[in-house]
Amino acid sequence: MEEREQNIRLGLFVGGGVLLLLAALFFLGLSSFFVSEEKVYTTFSESVQGLTEGSQVKYRGVPVGSVSDISIAVDDRIVKVEMKIRLDNFINRGTHEMQRQKFADYLRKEIGDGLRCRMEYAGITGMKFIDFDYFGKPEDAVPEAPEGLIGRDDLYLPSVPSTFKDISATLVSAIDRLSNIHFEEISGELESSLQKLSNLLSDPAIRSTIARTNEVVEHLEATASSVEKVFNEDEMQTMRENLNGALRSFRNLAETLDKRTRQIDFHSAQDDYHSLIVQLKQMIDSMRILAEYLETDPQSVLQGKGKQER
């Protein structure tokens, strides 16, 4: 009985271990034997430093395969990259052959719509992956595969230069432009301009103007402050409304006058017109007196003349 129990225990140990090994091997790569894959080729005319066999291939960020081979086309000075794409990510129905055909059709159509591949950094380690995305435009002409490098029936996905290459090119261009700038000349001109400016500022007339400007500003500030002391916001609002009303009345008066003057006979009403002019002159004089009074005693607008006397 004890022997039987020991056998069961050993069977569990060995059987469990073997099953665990098979499961681990399945998850860690052997499952790929049962996955339909299709090879897609591309070429790069830039350095592929950081891209290795096994590097990921992503379609808009989704892992869809890996790099399976990297070779150099010596004559063309370009790097040919072979990628294995898992077809289940794109077409998950039908037999392997059907999946391949559908994927090929799909890829050709998408290339026409601007699908291209590009190398991207996978992180801070310098490793790279290949990203499939619509970097091209539908109206762009589809680049042809380099002659003799890619088979007629093989799937070819054109590549675009990577962003870091663009950045590098931009930097080189910027440095070139910077090197074309004559800093010494600019420095000399700047120095001369500063000297002229210094001479100008030391001119007595300019100094006097600045001093007078300062005085004017000080006067303005004092005036503003006194006005602020006398009138608060509500009073100012009331005054503004009153002034608007007076202006409206004045405009009505002017319009009425205009109408009347058109209607009347100037020759016959010359005396009336004269008396009107006299009255208007008197009114303007009164307004001037009022304005002067207000200037000397602004508080009378609120308190009135009589109130102040009291």
Binding site: L21, A24, G29, P63
Partner: peptide
């Protein structure tokens, strides 16, 4: 884990 590890690595350990 299953992306970066492969069966060969495990078998070599064994």
């Amino acid at each position: 884990t299953i992306d970066v590890l492969d069966g060969i690595t495990m078998l070599l350990g064994i």
